[in-house]
Write a protein that binds this DNA or RNA. Structure first.
Length: 164
DNA sequence: GAGTTTGAAACT
DNA sequence: CAGTTTCAAACTC
């Protein structure tokens, strides 16, 4: 198994089908409520929620009532435009891996994508003075007493069918 | 809550 | 490809 993709979360107790395109970082909020209808809350002002700056779009979710974004296009009224952006994103991220280029945060703050995702920095990273002390292996993380491993969707489906 | 810092994403 | 700018979140006060 090459757990390089961020497509799927597998945890010890259950398999859960992803409801969204996993993009780059799994936020703490997401980990706590994996694949539930957790409404992200973005505050985008200039991106129209049509760029990856938008947290909602970055996870393939629509913006919702809890967002406080301005001139939002990440809704069903702008489906065509939105989906085009998402398609490009999926293509771009089909082999996305968690890596960072941190300069000042020592990979110890949530600015760091690796730290934020709960994974160790890897040789893919170009960070300076890395102090990311996550103990788990690459693409593994733990919240509370729940351990998670990021695996590709394909593998996820295989595991799921084996479980039946 | 306002202002600052940060680094990914976007752009050139 | 590398350097720069833009952006919104993380962080600080």
């Amino acid at each position: 198994m090459k757990p390089n993709h961020c497509d799927t979360i597998f945890n010890d107790d259950q398999f859960q089908t992803p409801t969204r395109q996993q993009k780059r970082v799994i936020t703490e909020t997401t980990i706590k409520k994996p694949f539930q209808q957790k409404q992200r809350q973005c505050t985008c002002k200039k991106s129209q929620c049509l760029k990856m700056y938008c947290d909602c779009l970055a996870f393939g979710e629509y913006c919702g009532s809890e967002c406080s974004c301005q001139n939002c296009h990440n809704d069903d009224k702008h489906l065509e435009q939105r989906n085009k952006v998402l398609e490009q994103m999926v293509e771009k991220n089909s082999s996305a891996q968690i890596k960072c280029n941190c300069r000042k945060s020592n990979c110890q703050k949530k600015y760091c994508e690796c730290y934020n995702a709960g994974v160790k920095c890897s040789e893919l990273c170009k960070c300076d003075d890395c102090k990311n002390s996550v103990k788990l292996g690459y693409n593994q993380f733990q919240i509370g007493n729940q351990k998670f491993i990021l695996i590709p969707v394909q593998t996820f489906e295989q595991l799921k069918s084996q479980q039946k």
